[in-house]
Design a protein around this nucleic acid. Structure first.
Length: 113
DNA sequence: GCCATGGCTAGTA
DNA sequence: GCCATGGCTAGTA
């Protein structure tokens, strides 16, 4: 696994309950400000294997980005169970729920697989 | 080639 | 609604 991929996974795993991050935010935090689509790709292909809280990731407008009805419903359900409510459009309040990793944020050790 | 983006513009109301 | 974006993988040479 490449360093960028490893960092993205680590960041997503550390989004606390009740918060969300955007694709672009995660890409930037992982060191690649224009890598939002990679974050998409990683979420799409690695969420299950790494047990990622994929539902805590939304697009830059705060919208649920999934098109599939079932996944969409599931994401809204998971979020609401954590206190993050989506409106009819599928938008959450970023002002209130956006997570910013603090300065105490630590990267995993390299030896960690 | 994939992909669950993002940011900007054209064009409508 | 258009289109530039990019790290990675699959698949070919």
């Amino acid at each position: 696994m490449q360093p960028f991929t490893r960092r993205v996974i680590h960041i997503i795993q550390n989004i606390p309950e009740g918060y969300v991050m955007t694709y672009g935010q995660i890409a930037e935090a992982a060191g690649s400000p224009r890598g939002a689509r990679q974050v998409v790709r990683i979420l799409h292909s690695m969420s299950a294997a790494h047990k990622l809280p994929w539902h805590r990731v939304v697009n830059a407008k705060g919208m649920i980005a999934l098109m599939d009805e079932e996944s969409r419903f599931k994401q809204i359900l998971y979020l609401s169970s954590e206190g993050v409510l989506a409106d009819e459009e599928g938008r959450v309040d970023l002002e209130q729920h956006r997570y910013q990793p603090g300065e105490d944020f630590s990267w995993p050790d390299e030896e960690e697989h």
